[in-house]
Design a protein around this nucleic acid. Sequence first.
DNA 1: TCATACCTACCTACTGATAGGTTATGGTCA
DNA 2: TGACCATAACCTATCAGTAGGTAGGTATGA
Lengths: 198, 198
Amino acid sequence: MQVTGTATQILDVAQELVQTRGYNAFSYKDLEARVGIRTASIHYHFPTKADLGTAIAKRYRDFVNSKFAEYEAKEVTAPKRLQRYAGLLESVLTKGNRICVGGMLASDYATLPLEVQTEVSAFIHDNERWLARVLKEGRAAGELAFDGTPEVLATTLFSALEGAMFVARSTGDHGRYRRTAEWLIGTLMSPRVAARRR
Amino acid sequence: MQVTGTATQILDVAQELVQTRGYNAFSYKDLEARVGIRTASIHYHFPTKADLGTAIAKRYRDFVNSKFAEYEAKEVTAPKRLQRYAGLLESVLTKGNRICVGGMLASDYATLPLEVQTEVSAFIHDNERWLARVLKEGRAAGELAFDGTPEVLATTLFSALEGAMFVARSTGDHGRYRRTAEWLIGTLMSPRVAARRR
DNA sequence: TCATACCTACCTACTGATAGGTTATGGTCA
DNA sequence: TGACCATAACCTATCAGTAGGTAGGTATGA
């Protein structure tokens, strides 16, 4: 048995299809050829599509949460941490025109099985909570300057970056994402920090 | 006989399904019961689903473009025009948990027929172009203050508002959209930002 | 010998789409 | 006027293909 078992392989392929086509636009049949086993065998690993969707969402949430920990360990300042976060999503976009799993499933939200919906809501919550903390600490440290609460700005940041992925893909211009991310973070940097950057 | 013909009625119902479920998550069968005619009859009005999707996208784009003209006629200042724009999307969200047609189709982009893709790209372009003009004029008039080009900020604004719709719906909290919109526009009018530019 | 992991074969329901028939309306012309 | 015809707008019936899912059998290795 490999380090990457069949179940993991199924998750990898299915996740890519979720990120490019969306939850309702891929089927077990699509997985068949790419994974190399029959649809019935995929049902052995993931009895229902809801199970598969939930597994994808859970794994992705864990992955992103691990990135949060990584960024906090590696980067000391809030602006750097935000840049890392924006860079993570950018790499998703660049690697095969993909969309963040959370953002894509959010767009399919009304049609998702309940357990997947719950996972999506939790994903958004995790992202916003982490962003809010980074923003709060950054402002306290004088690295960031902004009006309003960290919570509101966290939602705004998350919404903007997720939305920018859709816009970038629909216009065939990945630069749109990058410029949006740069504008947002640049605007948050305090005059002192911004001045040093020039 | 009626003021609203059958074709219009089909478009109304189909558009609602696009806005709530997405392009791939509704079928002619879904329209049957709600419109009150058989799927075959719907094919009479819209031969293919691509035709239907294109008609929905085109009509919505025209609708939004007409709103642009309306806001320019009714409102004199840039902040007011931006507030109107944000309010338009908010009313879409509030009225039946809907998503902007452009944003929803952008999320389905990779699976759309070519003609619908083209329409989606054009919708984004129209929105960004109008926003960029409002921002440019607003800055020239001293009503707004921001770093960077109007074009970049237009993309950011559009991305953020569209993304905020998804986030609001997935968290069951429409207030998230409103607060995001208010933060964005508020930041553009902020004296602090204006002072920083000098 | 027993669980794991795969298979073939099949199911029901639905997908977008087509063929061809029915009905109502309204215009043309001997 | 009335016979005729065209068209619009619907219908039933059907298509081939796909959806997610199930039943039950088989190979393999501990």
